[in-house]
Simulated scan of single mutants.
Amino acid sequence: MAALDRGRTRDGGYKKRAEKFGVRYTAFPREWVFERDGWICGLCDKPVDRHLAYPAPMSASLDHVIPLSRGGHHEPENVQCSHLTCNVRKGARVDARSTPQAVGA
Score class of each variant (00 low, 15 high):
5 D>I: 10
7 G>I: 10
10 R>V: 14
11 D>Q: 10
12 G>E: 08
15 K>W: 00
15 K>I: 03
15 K>S: 08
19 E>Y: 00
19 E>C: 00
20 K>A: 09
21 F>S: 03
22 G>R: 08
23 V>T: 06
25 Y>P: 00
25 Y>H: 02
30 R>T: 11
35 E>G: 06
38 G>D: 09
39 W>R: 06
39 W>C: 02
41 C>N: 02
42 G>H: 02
43 L>I: 12
44 C>S: 07
47 P>Q: 13
47 P>V: 11
49 D>Y: 13
49 D>I: 11
50 R>Q: 07
51 H>D: 14
52 L>Y: 06
53 A>N: 10
53 A>C: 08
57 P>Q: 09
57 P>M: 12
59 S>I: 03
60 A>S: 07
61 S>T: 05
63 D>T: 03
63 D>A: 00
64 H>L: 07
65 V>R: 08
66 I>M: 04
70 R>V: 01
71 G>K: 01
75 E>C: 12
79 V>D: 01
79 V>C: 09
81 C>E: 02
83 H>E: 01
84 L>Y: 03
85 T>A: 12
86 C>H: 02
86 C>W: 04
91 G>D: 10
92 A>N: 12
98 S>M: 15
98 S>R: 15
99 T>A: 08
101 Q>N: 13
102 A>H: 02
104 G>E: 09
105 A>Q: 14
